[in-house]
Structures are given as C-alpha cells and as structure tokens.
Design a protein around this nucleic acid. Sequence first.
DNA 1: CATCATTTTTGACATATATCAAACCTGTTT
DNA 2: AAACAGGTTTGATATATGTCAAAAATGATG
Lengths: 242, 242
Amino acid sequence: MLLPVPTYQSKSACSSCNLAEICLPINLSEFETYKLDELSPVKRSFSRSDYLYRSGDKFRSLFAIHSGSFKTQILHEDGREQVTGFQMTGEIIGLDAISTDIHACEAVALEDSVVCELPFNKLEALSREIPTLQRHLHKIMSREIVRDQGIMLLLGSMRAEERLAAFLLNLSQRFAARGLPATQFELRMSRQEIGSYLGMKLETVSRAFSHFQAQGLISVKVRTIEIVNLAGLQACLNSSRQ
Amino acid sequence: MLLPVPTYQSKSACSSCNLAEICLPINLSEFETYKLDELSPVKRSFSRSDYLYRSGDKFRSLFAIHSGSFKTQILHEDGREQVTGFQMTGEIIGLDAISTDIHACEAVALEDSVVCELPFNKLEALSREIPTLQRHLHKIMSREIVRDQGIMLLLGSMRAEERLAAFLLNLSQRFAARGLPATQFELRMSRQEIGSYLGMKLETVSRAFSHFQAQGLISVKVRTIEIVNLAGLQACLNSSRQ
DNA sequence: CATCATTTTTGACATATATCAAACCTGTTT
DNA sequence: AAACAGGTTTGATATATGTCAAAAATGATG
C-alpha cells in the first residue's frame, strides 16, 4: 500500500466528544480515561472554505477532526501553493506547527465540519503521565512522516495516471475504514485541488479521470466516483515504467 | 526558505558522545544532563554503502548522526525506489519507524560515518521525566514533517532546475550551520541519487548542473561544487512559471 | 426559468523532461 | 601504464504533461 491508511475505530455515535474513543482511539484504564478529561477539549464548527488555522498563526492546539474534512496547504512566497493533504474524520491536524510554534501551513474546511481542539500543553502534560497516550502521540506523528514520504514517492517516481489511481485507492480505503462504501463516494475537493496535491494540472486530472472511465475502471460524474474495477485500478499502480 | 535547516549547535570536539550537546542539543540542568546518561547511547561506525537499517527491520532505536552522512530511501514493490532524504551530522534518523515498530525505509551510509544509538524506550521514559526533552523530541518529529512537506512542495510545483537550485541552497545552509564553507563543498551522493530525491532523471540533473555552470551560477567539477553567484541561484527559485 | 459564475471537459499545440545512445572522466586494479 | 568499472556529460529524439482556448456542465441567485 502506497499511501498509509490511518487506523480509525468508530464506536457509537458520539455527540459529546468522547476523546478516548474518537479523537484518540486508544485503550486506556478507567483512571486514565478520567485523566484524559483534563484535556477538556472544545468542539468547534466550520463551514465550507473556513480556515481552521492560517499560515503564521501561533500554535496552541492540535485538532482532531470530529466530522467533515479539511485540506492543508503550504503557500510559497511566489504565490505557488501546494496541497499537502486531505484530512477526514478521526484524523489529527496541526502537527507541523509543533516544530516552530507557528503554523507552517493552513487548514481549510472542504465541507461543514466539526473539530475537537486539543491544547498541546495539556496533551504533553498528560502524555507524561500516561505512557500509552505518549506512545500514541508519537505514533501519530510518525505516521504523518510515513504518509508524507509516501507522497514523496508518488510525486517523485510515478506518472500522472498512477498518481491519480493511488489517490483514488487511498480515498477508497479511508472511506472503508470509516464504514462508508469503498467503491462509491463523493469527492470533496476540486480538480484543481487534486492536481495540486498530486503535482499535476487540473486538465491532466480531468483527462486521467476520463481515461479511467473509458477503460471501464471507474465511473465519474463530476465529483461522484464509483470504482468499477478495483483490481484494474490497482494494476495501474504496478504496471509502471520500471 | 524552502527546505528547513535543522538547528544544530556544534560545541567542542566530542570524542565521547556528549548527548546533551551533540545528539540532542538542548539546555538542561545538571541533574537532567545526569539523567540523560541513562540513555547510555552506543556509538556505531559504518563504512560507505553500509546499511544503518533496512526496510522491514524491527524498530528499537533512533540514531543521531555523529559524523558522516546517510541517505534514506523507500522501496516500492515494483522495484521503484525513492530517496527520501540526505542526513548529515547532528540530524536524527529513524523517526518513520515509530508508527509501526518496523522500519519503513532504509538508511545507507554515503561515507564513513558514526552514529549514536538512542534506544527509543529509554528516550520515551526519560522524556516523561524531563519535559524539555519531551518537547525537544516533539519538535524533532514535527520538523521532519515540515521538511517532508517542503519536499512535497518542491516535487509538486517546481521545475527541474528550480528543484536543483533549492537542493544546492539547502545543502549550502546545512554546511554553513555546521561551520563548514557554505559556497564550496563535496557532494556525497551520485547524480542518480540526487535525481531520485528530486524526482528527475540523472541526465536531467547533470544537464541542470551544466546549465547553472554556463550561467555562471556555480562551478561544478563532478562532485565538487562551488556556488559562485548565491543570489543568482536564489533567484532561480523565485523566477518560476506563475 | 433565465442569468451568471464556477468548475469541468475536451481539443490543438507547445515544451520540459525522459529515453536511448555514445563519448568522456575518474579512480581502481592488474 | 593499460585495462576496467562506474559514474558523468552530452546529443538526438520521443513523449508525457503543460498551456491556451473554447465549449459544456453544474450550481447559485435573482
């Protein structure tokens, strides 16, 4: 698997943000779960295209996405921008800012979304007391590193259609991990945003979609995607120029 | 600044690995420095092209590069490989493996090198006791995330010559941060390895070097590089298509 | 429903980079 | 010194993807 699929376990519907289950899905003792309440996370709602944080903002918290989805992007001086990721329910966002205490990238809601704010000071204090939480936090950060390196592999050594295939397969697995249909889903992002993420122009993204459809691998209707031939799409990835 | 330059402070020559100064350059109290000895790091030597670890190896330790340099690379099933980074003295290597307890990539010495092995269990235990160390570890991991995202920007939105310019400028800054000449240095890696890292073929790397030389920006003699016109090289970066 | 703005698709063409091939270095071994 | 291997440079050509432009689809608004 090229792009790693973060582990995620959905439990019961959680209207009051149950940290131990949703935001930080780990197994803790009753006492530890109690301690975790010290985080006293706040939930915040965002509408489509709202900023969760902007580049240059002071870093205070990590955010666990409770529902909805976001994109993160870096802005380069000369106006270039690069989407560095699309995040969905259960994923943690904001890790890049720990290094400098300033957000290096910005996070924008792709749809109406709710996030759970996790003050980083408290998270660090708690993880000194709860080794399981400490290890979990380290794994989350490491997983982000592995994810980013997977994208480096993708950008550095795959051609356009392979990249798009990898992207669709990754989305498919992440939807499946959330109990959603794996072969039929709505894209929350534009061709332009997909292109930025995958290092290609929006026209190339569109052409690749059309080509996959012509090959009978998928069915595209603007942002509604159905994967018709999963194995075929996976084969796209391996059938590369050496 | 595109590619982040890790902070690094060289102190006196350290023949016995002084952790607090070299491997983990942070300010600690005397007591904390004493505690840090509990890590009892082991130094290990490697010759050029030796593996520090291989993909699939069980994860036990992070490694601080004491002298020399390494490359890290991911191997894809179909034989493709992607260099994900070049690491030099003072940098920490192995963070990707925390997420799964298995090394996802492999690290190969680019020259004779010495590393300082930091058992991760002990590092975690210590960082529960020493908040400064905990924060430092988090910053190191976050910095790796930022670095990787910088490379995503590079791979996703820059053309070949811009990427090479960014690479040279980054190397230059990292040498300077170590008290080495910023405008004259030896490349430790082949054109092929640079190409893999920057998402281009070795011939394209070679041509870009030649072109920079023809423009009077640098002087190349195989692996000996001299930056003749630093500002000109920086201008390469900003003068991008749109 | 008509209009408008935005996004998406498709086409024709341009170009950056890959590919293939040969010559040239550089350092090492015999 | 000669021969060799691996890396590097350079050239000719192919091709994937970008660029520019127009049409088509979609969704929002009055």
